[in-house]
């Protein structure tokens, strides 16, 4: 468990910087805003205790909030996603349970498992975030379109990031 520490500290800083310096400046047709920083929460170890999960979700969301002048918005969405994570993990548990010493990544459990798992969390996060941002149901359709298109983009980025970290592991 302790041996994961440097890796996750690096992940936290790296994904946050990518998010606030690069991805926050991306805009395609006014609808697409990818949010890659949630990959940090998605790939935390299975054994992460619940309270730590929520606190990490809060702090990673808050850091992005500080940089984009939206106090609380990302934090609340990320906390919501962290809360759902244990239930989603239980829902998709393989028949022989999760092996000790593994983490929820594509490298250990394959692309189809990882897609099912991350799509649900990404959709939950984006839905919460965009509705908090608009704070009404008035623009329901356009918000819905933003959720779907941004989720697609985020999931693509997550897959690319996963492929990179997978390649690194095999190289060792």
């Amino acid at each position: 468990m302790i041996s994961y520490l440097p890796r996750y500290i690096f992940n936290f800083i790296f994904f946050t910087l990518i998010q606030v310096l690069v991805l926050n400046n991306i805009q395609l047709s006014g609808y697409v805003n990818p949010y890659l920083y949630i990959l940090f929460i998605i790939t935390l170890p299975f054994e992460t205790p619940g309270w730590l999960l929520l606190l990490l979700g809060f702090s990673s969301g808050m850091v992005v909030d500080v940089f984009s002048d939206t106090p609380g918005m990302h934090a609340s969405a990320t906390v919501f996603m962290s809360y759902l994570r244990p239930y989603v993990l239980r829902l998709f548990a393989p028949r022989e349970e999760y092996q000790p010493g593994t983490i929820p990544t594509m490298g250990y459990y394959g692309i189809s498992w990882f897609l099912r798992y991350s799509v649900i969390l990404v959709l939950a996060h984006h839905t919460f975030l965009f509705f908090i941002e608009v704070f009404s149901l008035a623009h329901f359709f356009s918000t819905f379109l933003r959720i779907v298109s941004s989720s697609v983009f985020t999931i693509l980025l997550i897959l690319v990031a996963q492929l990179f970290s997978q390649g690194k592991k095999q190289g060792r």
Binding site: G50, W51, L54, G57, F58, G72, M73, S76, V79
Partner: peptide
Amino acid sequence: LFFIIEAVSLLLV
């Protein structure tokens, strides 16, 4: 804990 943290962040918003 989830409800407490969520309430704090929504208060921030």
